[in-house]
Amino acid sequence: MNPETNSYTTAGGIASRLLKSIPGVIDYELARSFTPARIAMFTLMVLIPTALMIAVANLTPQRVRNEQEASIAFCLLLFFLIPQILTTLGMLVLASPIVHAELEGQSWLYSLIRYQGRRALLLGKYIVAVLWTTCAGILSASIAIPFLPLQDPLKTWGTISLLCVLSSIAYGALFSLIGVIFQKRVMVIAFIYALVAEGLLAWIPAVINQFTISYRLRSILFRWLGLSVEKYFSSDGMVRNGMVASDPTGWAQIGWVLGISAGLLLLALILIERIQYSFQSEL
């Protein structure tokens, strides 16, 4: 038995032991992350959006490169390719199979029979997925931005980097929850959800889009880069009520994203303790 503590029942004791367990999972997951396959995936995650943006920048006629509209268009392209596509796909691949990978590798039972095994596994893997994806996003933005015709590259880099972090945190929590709920075809389910909710519903100018992560991230982008929603999206006035991006301050939006992420993670933590997974072929 653990010689360091015998505190099982108090909330403080449980939390303290969980906090001790999580770094163990992070260490372990990072140690086994540096495989050729994972490094190749990371490289592709970084290089594909970077190459696309640089290619588009090179194809942009010189006469429009210095105009403000070009700068804004590249800001939107950065946002679309990095905090939206790269981090979403990265978290889809890394966070959604949190439980499924353990079940398939027949290692789930070993976590199951540890005092804080399930919770530590979920949170540890989630943190590692956020670290990998955030690093890929920020690195991609860092490589691409010097080649793009931006009016304020430093501010754009800061905003995109922050959005990468927020996007990874939020999509990671969302896909972790999906991964906890579904045991089979979890990546397909997560992909369909991302496509329908975050890709489609988020752009529908109705109240429903305000419940999507994409909408909140977009609002932060517009607010922090001082973009006018009406100017770029309102051909028919539909954005007046904040249907493409909302009015509250960037900090309020950050609070919303972090709050919803915490809620999703909490739900995942509750469910992972309660769901009975089939972990042995003969069961």
């Binding site: 653990n2 360091e4 032991r17 001790k20 367990s21 163990g24 260490d27 372990y28 804080q116 530590a120």
Partner: peptide, 12 residues
């Protein structure tokens, strides 16, 4: 083994 022990709340 270190992972599994740390999951049980043991220090590194």
């Amino acid at each position: 083994l270190v992972l599994l022990l740390r999951m049980s709340g043991w220090s590194r």
